[in-house]
Simulated assay, not measured.
Amino acid sequence: MNERAISFGESGALFGIIGSPEIPDPQRPAVLIPNTGVIHRVGPSRMHVELARALASAGLVSLRLDNAGLGDSEIVPGRSDADSTLDLCAAMDALDARNMSTGIIIIGSHSGAYDAHEAARVDPRLIGAVFLDGYIPSTPRAWLNRTMARLTERSRHLPPEPLGISLTPKSGSALHDVLPSEIHYYDAPSHSRMEADLVEFIRRQLSLLYVYTGDVEHQYTYAAQLIDAFPILRGYRHLTIRQIPEADHHFIRRATREALIDMLVDWVLGVAAQRQANPETR
C-alpha cells in the first residue's frame, strides 16, 4: 500500500493522509475518515490508521484528515469558526482532483458522526455514510428500558434509601452522578430535521450504517430503536444497524477494534459492489 501526506483546502491549510493500494481502481469509492472529537487523524487507539490500511489491503483509497484547527490542520483564514462541513467538502474536492475513485463514503465516530451527517446533507458526492455512536433518537420503549435499567442498577449497587427519598436524580446533581451516556458534548439535529434529512437520504439512495457500542447502551437500548423513531426507514434496503455491546466508544480492546474494522471494510466493499452492479444508484 501507499501512504502520502497532502495539504488541501483554501490556502492549503488542511492536512491529511491518503492511503491507497498499489494500483487504485478508479471505479471503486474512496473513504473519508474525519476526526473523532479533538483526537487527530490517527483516531482513537490508532483506529483510523488501522482502518485506512485495511481498506488499502482491500483495494480502496482513503483520506483520513484533520479538520481545521486540529492536528496538523490550521485554522482557515477568513473563517471565524471551524466549520467541519466545509473541511469535509474540501477533502472530497482533494479526492476528486486525484481521479482515484468513483463516489465517496464517509466514516464518522461520535462528533465525527455528526460531521458526517451534516456533510451528507449538503454534498451529493457521498454515496454512503457510517455513524459510530452518532445520533440516538428516543422512543417510548427506549425510555422504559432506561428507566428500568436505572432502577435495577441503583437497587443492585446502592443501599436502601430512607423512606420518602426518591431514587431518581435530582436537578443540580453532581456531574459524577450522571450516567456517562447522558452527557452530550455535541448538538444533534432535531427530530423533525433528522426525519427530513432521512427522507432526502432515501431519495438519493444513500447507503447508511449506524453502529452503537456498549458505551451508549443506556441511550440506544434495543436494535430497532432507530427504525421505531423514524418509521420511514422501515424496509429501506440501503440501511444497516449494528450493536456492539461488548465494545467501548474508543475501541480500546484490540479484539473489538479488529472486529469493527472487518465489519466496516466488508460493508464498504458491499456498497462498492452494489454501486457497480447498479450504476443508476451512483
Score class of each variant (00 low, 15 high):
Leu132Tyr: 02
Leu151Tyr: 08
Met148Ala: 10
His117Gln: 12
His110Pro: 07
Val211Trp: 04
Pro169Ser: 06
Leu144Val: 14
Val178Arg: 10
Ala149Leu: 07
His191Tyr: 09
Arg125Pro: 06
Phe201Lys: 01
Val199Asn: 08
His184Arg: 13
Arg154Phe: 10
Arg156Leu: 14
Thr168Lys: 12
Met194Leu: 11
Glu195Pro: 09
Ser192Pro: 02
Pro124His: 12
Arg141Gly: 06
Leu158Val: 11
Thr152Ile: 08
Ala188Leu: 03
Val122Ala: 12
Leu209Gln: 01
Gly112Asp: 01
Ala188Lys: 09
Thr147Met: 12
Leu198Asn: 06
Ile106Arg: 00
Arg141His: 10
Val211Pro: 00
His184Lys: 14
Ser166Met: 07
Pro162Met: 06
Ala149Lys: 08
Glu161Asn: 12
Gly214Thr: 02
Ser109Tyr: 08
Ala119Lys: 00
Tyr222Ser: 03
Ile165Glu: 12
Arg150His: 14
Pro137Asn: 09
Gly108Lys: 03
Tyr186Val: 14
Leu206Tyr: 01
Glu153Gly: 08
Asp177Phe: 09
Thr168Glu: 13
Ala116Ser: 13
Phe201Cys: 05
Ser207Arg: 00
Leu167Asn: 11
Val199Glu: 11
Pro160Gly: 07
Thr168Tyr: 15
Gly214Cys: 01
Ser138Gly: 09
Ala119Asp: 03
Gly214Arg: 01
Leu175Cys: 05
Val211Met: 06
Ala174Leu: 14
Gly164Tyr: 04
Gly164His: 04
Leu126Ile: 13
Ala223Ser: 11
Val211Gly: 02
Ile106Tyr: 00
Asp133Lys: 04
Gly108Ala: 06
Ala149Ile: 01
Leu179Ile: 09
Pro140His: 05
Tyr186Asn: 10
Ala113Trp: 04
Ala223Cys: 07
Asn145Thr: 00
Arg203Pro: 04
Pro169Arg: 08
Leu198Lys: 08
Ile202Lys: 11
Phe131Tyr: 10
Ala224Asp: 15
Glu200Ile: 03
Glu182Tyr: 12
Thr221Cys: 07
Asp133Ile: 04
Ser138Glu: 10
Glu217Gln: 12
Gly103Asp: 00
Asp123Asn: 07
Leu132Pro: 00
